[in-house]
Computed example of a mutant assay.
Amino acid sequence: MSVGAELRLAVVVLGASRGIGRAIARVAARDGNIVVLVARSPEDLAAAAAEIVGAGGEAFTIELDLASQDASSRMEAFLAAKGLACGVLVNSAGYGLRGAATSLPADEQLGIIDVNIRALADMTLRFLPGMVARRSGGVINLGSVAGFAPGPYMAFYYASKNFVRAFSTALHEEVRRFGVTVTCVAPGPVSTDFLEKSGADRAALFKVLPKLDADYVAHEAWQGFKSGRRLVVPGISSKLAAFIARILPSAMALRLIGRAQRRKRDPNPRRPETSIAAPARKPESAFGKPDA
């Protein structure tokens, strides 16, 4: 689909080199969309692009550190140079750290704010006005069931996902009358390398909750977005976890989550680097007005 006589609309996926981001890029491509893959690893980007091209899709790649202050302006310039415009933005990049806030490196914890919050908000503010002007498209923000509660021993990660949920919900209400959708996707634990790199795989809480498949989460996210939904919580276990987090008294939730995530020993954390497919179907553009 084109914008005027020059620019073509694309699905821009941040954190597209692996995990849920890579899976949702495949879903978007199967729907007949041009996909722009954004990540830091050139090798992973090349592999993700090869999957899309091999399936008959069209893919562009850009190596970009989302923690940089000029990331959104560089993204916009790249799209313009390729004759593209952002029709759908997928904010699926992010990371987390497990451990007491007083024991983890401050710069790595503040980096969670830079990537999970600032970069997500910056990219959204950069491209959402164009969607409103065209009265089509929208934004998919990757949240988490962690966004329904505070999270001792993963304080910055839980807080960042609280922001994503609140920010997405508010924007959805602001722009839905223009035919634009902002969807927050809030899965529970997903079988990606996020769990290992964040250290969450060693927490009792994440050992108890069932692991969702990244392809399943991506499919649910994409279909929910196209249906115009403001919140998608994939899977029964995730829905149950979100429900419990909402009804538990705050003091009880804090104690339970804290106990489930506290580690007996707190080794030096590793810097994580994380980044959200569906049955094939007839190509269908995601840029039209969302279904009612």
Results as ranks from 00 to 15, higher is better:
A49I: 00
A50L: 03
A50P: 08
E51Y: 00
I52S: 00
I52N: 00
I52A: 00
I52K: 00
V53H: 00
V53S: 00
V53A: 01
V53W: 00
G54T: 01
E58I: 03
E58F: 00
F60L: 06
T61W: 00
T61E: 06
T61N: 01
I62P: 05
I62L: 15
E63H: 01
E63I: 08
L64K: 02
L64T: 10
D65N: 15
D65R: 07
L66E: 13
S68C: 12
Q69C: 07
Q69K: 15
A71L: 11
A71T: 13
A71F: 11
S72L: 09
S72F: 10
S73C: 08
S73L: 12
S73G: 08
R74K: 15
R74S: 11
M75G: 15
E76R: 15
E76Y: 10
E76N: 14
E76W: 06
A77I: 03
F78S: 01
F78A: 03
F78M: 02
L79E: 02
L79T: 02
L79C: 07
L79F: 04
A80W: 04
A80T: 08
K82R: 15
G83H: 11
G83I: 11
A85Y: 06
C86L: 03
G87P: 05
V88C: 02
V88N: 02
L89E: 02
L89W: 01
L89K: 01
V90A: 01
V90W: 02
S92N: 12
Y95H: 13
G96D: 03
L97A: 09
R98N: 13
R98W: 05
G99H: 12
A100W: 08
A100C: 10
A100I: 06
A101Q: 05
T102I: 10
S103F: 02
S103N: 12
L104W: 06
A106D: 04
Q109A: 06
L110Q: 10
G111I: 10
G111C: 11
I112D: 05
I113T: 13
D114G: 12
N116A: 05
N116V: 08
N116M: 03
I117N: 05
I117D: 04
R118G: 03
A119W: 09
A119T: 13
A119R: 13
L120Y: 04
M123F: 14
M123A: 12
T124W: 06
T124M: 04
L125S: 09
L125Y: 09
R126A: 14
R126L: 07
F127T: 10
P129E: 10
P129F: 09
G130K: 14
G130P: 12
G130I: 11
V132S: 08
R134W: 09
R134T: 05
R134L: 11
R134G: 09
G137E: 02
G137I: 06
G137Y: 09
L142Y: 04
L142M: 12
G143W: 01
G143T: 09
G147Y: 07
A149N: 13
A149H: 15
A149K: 15
A149Y: 05
P150D: 11
P150Q: 07
G151I: 11
Y153F: 15
M154R: 13
M154P: 04
M154E: 14
A155C: 12
F156I: 05
F156H: 13
F156T: 14
Y158P: 01
Y158M: 01
A159Y: 04
S160V: 04
S160C: 06
K161T: 04
K161Y: 02
N162P: 01
F163W: 11
